[in-house]
Amino acid sequence: MIGLVPLAEVEETAVERLLDRAFEPTRRQRTAYLVRGNATAVAALSFAALDAGALVGTVQCWPVCFTPDLGASVPLVMVGPVAVAPERQRDGIGRRLMVRALAAAGEHGCDDRLVLIGDPEYYGRFFGFTAERTGGWRLPGPIEQRRLLARGDAVPDGAGTLGPA
């Protein structure tokens, strides 16, 4: 039986090994890492999936900031990565982790300001993320604009830069 626990309860090296397996060591070169910068994941929004004590999945959430071309900066929460052990993918673990992270965002009053980079068909269908407000956003690395997704009433619409908080 899979249990979800706060990510802080899991050894950091185990999390890093899982991320390497799920996304390969080159993951650190991805745009999402540049957006997050050197931030620390938000502990209250980050979770691990354990099966008989073995780490099989994680979700992390990060403080980021949207700086519009005109106006004041807006703090946001970047969801992801959602990582699942390759041999356990398609078991619903990632979905359970997302549901838990989104519930925690609601509990902490930040579910109106979420952003992620991911598959719009999946994250839109199951979790309500869209690219309708992010079309004018710039990131510190390459991005397929249709994969830059957001959810919530506090998400800004317009031109600006998404980067570290």
Rank of each mutant, 00 (worst) to 15 (best):
C110I: 14
P25W: 06
A159Q: 13
G71V: 15
Y122K: 00
E9V: 11
G71M: 14
P25K: 10
G92H: 06
C110N: 02
C61F: 01
G53F: 05
C110Y: 01
R28L: 11
G141C: 04
V5Q: 08
E11L: 10
T40G: 09
T67S: 15
R151L: 04
V82L: 09
V84N: 03
V42M: 13
V64S: 00
R36M: 11
T13N: 05
Q60E: 15
V84D: 02
F127C: 04
V84P: 01
R88G: 02
R125Q: 09
I143K: 00
T161A: 15
A85Y: 03
R27N: 01
Q29D: 10
R133Q: 12
A49D: 00
R36K: 13
G71L: 15
G92T: 02
A105M: 07
P75N: 02
V115G: 07
C110F: 04
L55P: 01
T130E: 06
P75H: 07
R90H: 13
P6K: 07
D112S: 14
T13R: 13
R147W: 03
G71P: 09
A105E: 00
E24I: 13
L55R: 01
L50E: 04
G152P: 03
R125I: 00
T13E: 07
V56Y: 04
V56R: 09
G152Q: 01
V10S: 01
E11R: 12
R90Q: 12
V42I: 15
L76I: 13
F127R: 01
V115H: 02
D20V: 11
A165V: 10
P25R: 14
T26P: 00
V74C: 14
P63V: 02
A41Y: 13
P164W: 02
A83N: 01
A104E: 03
L18I: 03
G94E: 00
A72V: 13
R151F: 03
D69E: 15
Q145T: 12
Y33H: 10
A41G: 04
E24Y: 11
F127E: 00
D91K: 09
F47C: 06
N38K: 13
R113E: 01
R151S: 04
L149D: 00
R96I: 00
L76M: 13
D153W: 06
C65T: 11
D111R: 06
R95N: 09
V99T: 13
A159S: 14
A85N: 06
V74R: 06
M1N: 07
Y33P: 00
V10W: 01
A41N: 03
A154K: 14
E87V: 09
Y122H: 02
R125A: 12
L114C: 10
A131C: 12
A48V: 08
E24V: 14
R28Q: 05
E132Q: 11
L19A: 08
R36W: 04
E144D: 10
E12R: 10
E132V: 14
P120N: 03
L18P: 01
A85D: 14
G135H: 11
G124E: 01
E11C: 12
M1W: 08
L76T: 07
R146K: 11
C65F: 07
L7S: 08
E144M: 09
T67L: 15
A54F: 04
L34P: 00
A103M: 11
L50H: 07
R147N: 10
